[in-house]
Amino acid sequence: MTRWGMAIDLDRCTGCEACVVACAAENNIQTVGEEQAREGRAMHWLRIERYYEGEFPNVRTRFMPVLCQQCGAAPCEPVCPVYATYRNPEGLNAMVYSRCIGTRFCANNCPYTVRVFNWFDAEFPAPLDSQLNPDVSVRPGGVMEKCTFCVQRIQAGKDEAAQEERDVADGDIRTACQQSCPTKAITFGDLEDPDSEVSKWAESPRAFSLLGDLDTRPGVVYLSGSEWREPAE
């Protein structure tokens, strides 16, 4: 079996937000505009949280990319009345847009607040429609969405491997954020495969889970060498 997972080395993260941009481009995430963003409706599947430590001038900024943690025991799943979000056999916390009726219950129950909602229909006026990724649906208004671990790339990778009659190799499938990270702070792969890079990162003594005491069993592992293990209180 496969369990897709991601490891993010916070010690390497510079907070450049290249991953955020790559994610938005890859996944046809709508741009809501200033006014909506001011109302707290900016849509990002991946955000860089900034936390400041110390007193001026000895301030240190820490960055933490937060995305859907693809929980093994996801609080969002059981509350959806229509099975629009569920746990798929490969450990993904799946989101089925066409099934979603927009109760937003899942978003309330997400301890990481990583689910975003389409408050209006997405608009991609020409020529922006030309840059849409054809492998990803454009979500209509009233539908919940979130990081999918670039499931279109996962499916394409598996399809390609099947066409070539081989197994998916570690590194075959790369998420958009991973691909765009200049410091290579993100790695992605199969957590069940002990030889994969992500498994090795996950075994690091620096590894921890975000809000790990909730026992949501995240599929995203963070690595940090400092004593700072949790976001600032």
Binding site: E77, P78, Y83, Y86, R87, N88, P89, G91
Partner: peptide, 17 residues
Amino acid sequence: GLAAGTALAYPLPTGGM
């Protein structure tokens, strides 16, 4: 029957639940 039967008759992927 509705709650238990339909769930059995139409098994959806529940990820181990």
